[in-house]
Design a binder for these strands. Sequence first.
DNA 1: CCGCTCATTTGACATAAATCAAAAAAGAAA
DNA 2: TTTCTTTTTTGATTTATGTCAAATGAGCGG
Lengths: 187, 187
Amino acid sequence: MQTLFSHIRKYCQLSDESLHRLGSVLKPVELEKGSLLITEGKVCQHVYFLERGCLRGFYNVDGREITYWFAFENNFVTSLLSFVTRLPGMENIQLLEDCKLWAIAYDDLQTLYQTHTDINTLGRIMNERYYVMLEERFVSNHFREARDRYENLLARAPHILQRVPLGHVASYLGMTQETLSRIRAKS
Amino acid sequence: MQTLFSHIRKYCQLSDESLHRLGSVLKPVELEKGSLLITEGKVCQHVYFLERGCLRGFYNVDGREITYWFAFENNFVTSLLSFVTRLPGMENIQLLEDCKLWAIAYDDLQTLYQTHTDINTLGRIMNERYYVMLEERFVSNHFREARDRYENLLARAPHILQRVPLGHVASYLGMTQETLSRIRAKS
DNA sequence: CCGCTCATTTGACATAAATCAAAAAAGAAA
DNA sequence: TTTCTTTTTTGATTTATGTCAAATGAGCGG
C-alpha cells in the first residue's frame, strides 16, 4: 500500500486523514496470469492500482480481439467507460503476468470524492492524465505506415516490447502479427 | 452564457456562488470560419465553451493533416494535453464555421478548482466524459474495413456528415477522401 | 533430454485502399 | 448569369498489408 501512496504523492498532496481513509477502503487482490480482471457485459465496480505485474485491455471488435492498452506497475486500471457511466462495458482486462493489485469500490470512491476535497482533486488529475495518455496513443496510431507506428512505439515505450507477446503488440499497433514480425526482421 | 450554465446543469449542480464566480471570469470570443483557435507549438491557455458553430482538431502527422476530432454546439473545447501538462501542444483547432465561444483562462480555472469544490467536481466529471468519448472513438477506429468505420459513424454521429466537408471526415475515419467517396457511392 | 504447447517467423498469394490524375459538381463572388 | 474556387467523384494503376498455411524456435513439465 505504501507503493500506492508514494505513487499518489507524485501527483498531488493528500492529507494524512485522506490517506488513512483511502487505505481503509482498499482491498488487496492477487490474481494469476491469464485471468480476467474485468469482463465485457458487466458494470465495472472497481478502480485498481497495479502494484506488480502487467495486463492488457482488449475489445472484441468485428470478431477479433483488439488490444488497445497495456498497464504496468504503478498504474491505475479500470474500465473507465463502464465505471463512470454505470453501464455494462465492452472492455476486457486480462493479466499478462501474475499480479498484485489494490481495489477500491465505486461507492467508496464516490463517498471519498464527496467528503475529501483533496481526493476529488486527485481523481480529476488522474483523469486528466489518462486522457492525455489515450490521446497520445490515438495520435500515434494515425501514422500512415505500419513501420512508423512500430518505430514510434520503440521510441516511446520500448518496455512494452520486452514484456508483452508480439501478437498483442501487433494488435495494439493496428497490424497483424505477421506484419509486425516482418517489420522487425527488416530493422 | 445561459446556454453554458444550462449545459453544466445537466452534469452537476453548481451553487449560485460558483456559477457567479465562473461567469465573472468567462470572456466572450467570436471568430470567423477558417481561423485557428489553438495552434501547435504553443501552450494552450484556455478552455472554451462552444456556444455556436463547429470546429475540428487536427495534428500534422507524417506531413499531412490528421483530423481527429469535431466539436459542435454545447461542447467544451481545448487542447487538453497542452492545457494540463503546461507544455507546447501538437494540436491545432480550426473553425469550420463562424463561432461564438466563451473562454476561461488556465489560472482562473485552477483558482476556481481550489476555492470551489463543486467546480472541482465539475472538472472531474467533464474529464471523465471526455475520456469516454475519446475511447469510443478510439475503439471504432479499430474496425478493420473502411466501410465499417463509415457505417459506424453514420450510426453514431450522422450530424458530422451534414456539417463537415468530406475531406475532413475521411481523415477523421482514417481513409483518403477518394475512398470515402467511393464507399458513399456504393451505399 | 524429450515431447508438448505456445510464440514467432517465413512464404505465396489476394485484396483493400492509397496514389496520381483529371473530370464533374457545387458554392461563392462578381 | 458568368466566372472562379472549392469540394466531390471517377478512373487507372500501384502497393502495403492482410490472409492462409506451414516451418521454426522457445519455454516448460515430466
